[in-house]
Design a protein around this nucleic acid. Structure first.
Lengths: 127, 127
DNA sequence: CGGCATCCCCAAGGATACTG
DNA sequence: CAGTATCCTTGGGGATGCCG
């Protein structure tokens, strides 16, 4: 991802290690559910169920799974209130908010080009 | 994705239609292979095999599949030279280049926070 | 070389249910 | 309400092969 992969210099091991780590992070994050959750959370703090309501069509399982992933990568934080019934809140950290900026750009892009894309699809079908 | 989903007004059908279209486009594009291909193509024109070499670990099938998708959405264009053996070149269109800007942001983000993320992971494991 | 089809398998992910 | 586990299905995606 941008980083050259030459060989011979001493810090190569670190470079390629950082590179594969970068790819791994990218793969974690570059999937629709993760991005939609990040978008949904925004600058607010939401409960589990609220996130589920915001993210159209996500299953319980996918939500937990992706929230764990975000937590593990330090993009979201989770606060558990030891009440009954439980109350668990999620909020984006600073890295998460920074990523959200890029997600916003993607959303903006989608809306800006939605017309182009739709007509391109029409042309593509009728070939 | 940003668009409110109230109900009652006459243009609602169009709004929700645009919205579901937006989600569809987003899902198409928000996956690691698509984004990595867009990143790889950059402002250059590359042959099929060259893209495959650029995008670490992608299979023949996934590459064709995603290239078709990009073509269908008007994000990439494909030029076929009727030579033998065939030569097929791909290049990003203007919408594709615009999307690439956002991909760049994501890559920058990855590199900026790679340290945070790595240490966050360490903390997460050792709980 | 690159598109397309076929086969095949594993893992993603939905549904359900029990727990604290 | 939310986490975790179990089951089960589906389709994503790899491997291979043939064709233009």
């Amino acid at each position: 991802m941008g980083t050259k992969q030459l060989s011979g210099s001493p810090e190569d091991a670190d470079l390629t290690r950082a590179d594969s780590l970068a790819r791994e992070i990218f793969s974690d994050v570059a999937n629709k559910w993760a991005l939609l959750i990040i978008e949904a959370l925004g600058e607010r703090t939401l409960r589990f169920g609220e996130v589920r309501d915001e993210v159209e069509g996500i299953s319980h399982k996918m939500l937990t799974q992706n929230l764990r992933m975000l937590e593990r990568n330090g993009l979201a934080e989770c606060t558990v209130y030891p009440t009954v019934p439980p109350k668990v809140e999620y909020t984006l950290t600073e890295p998460g908010l920074a990523l959200r900026e890029t997600v916003h750009r993607m959303c903006d892009w989608t809306h800006r080009y939605i017309g182009h894309i739709e007509s391109s699809r029409d042309r593509f079908e009728t070939v």
